[in-house]
Simulated assay, not measured.
Amino acid sequence: MAKLKITQTGSPIRRAPIQKQNLIGLGLNKMHRVRELEDTPSVRGMIRVVNHLVKVEEIA
């Protein structure tokens, strides 16, 4: 299964609670943290909510 490398680039300060919760769900809650997660529809949905706060790269 494909993997995604997700890096947090934006701060969760002054963001909607749902955006903060999605960052925590992705394993990101501080700037410049990086996580590798499997590419699933649920992860893609969480990324879509916080796409302005993260950078996503596909890993082969």
Results as ranks from 00 to 15, higher is better:
residue 2 A to I: 14
residue 4 L to S: 03
residue 5 K to M: 07
residue 6 I to W: 01
residue 7 T to I: 10
residue 8 Q to W: 04
residue 8 Q to E: 07
residue 8 Q to D: 04
residue 10 G to P: 02
residue 11 S to I: 13
residue 13 I to A: 09
residue 13 I to V: 15
residue 14 R to Q: 10
residue 15 R to L: 06
residue 17 P to W: 13
residue 17 P to K: 15
residue 17 P to A: 15
residue 18 I to E: 10
residue 19 Q to L: 15
residue 19 Q to H: 15
residue 20 K to G: 06
residue 21 Q to P: 04
residue 21 Q to Y: 10
residue 21 Q to N: 15
residue 23 L to G: 02
residue 23 L to R: 04
residue 23 L to F: 07
residue 24 I to Y: 10
residue 27 G to T: 12
residue 27 G to E: 08
residue 27 G to Q: 12
residue 29 N to G: 09
residue 32 H to N: 15
residue 32 H to M: 15
residue 33 R to Q: 15
residue 34 V to Y: 10
residue 35 R to A: 05
residue 35 R to Q: 10
residue 36 E to M: 08
residue 38 E to K: 11
residue 39 D to Y: 05
residue 39 D to C: 06
residue 39 D to V: 09
residue 41 P to T: 13
residue 42 S to T: 15
residue 42 S to H: 08
residue 42 S to P: 02
residue 42 S to K: 08
residue 43 V to R: 00
residue 44 R to Q: 09
residue 44 R to E: 03
residue 46 M to H: 01
residue 46 M to W: 00
residue 46 M to K: 02
residue 46 M to T: 01
residue 48 R to N: 05
residue 48 R to T: 10
residue 49 V to G: 00
residue 50 V to S: 00
residue 50 V to P: 00
residue 50 V to N: 00
residue 51 N to Y: 12
residue 53 L to E: 00
residue 53 L to D: 00
residue 53 L to R: 01
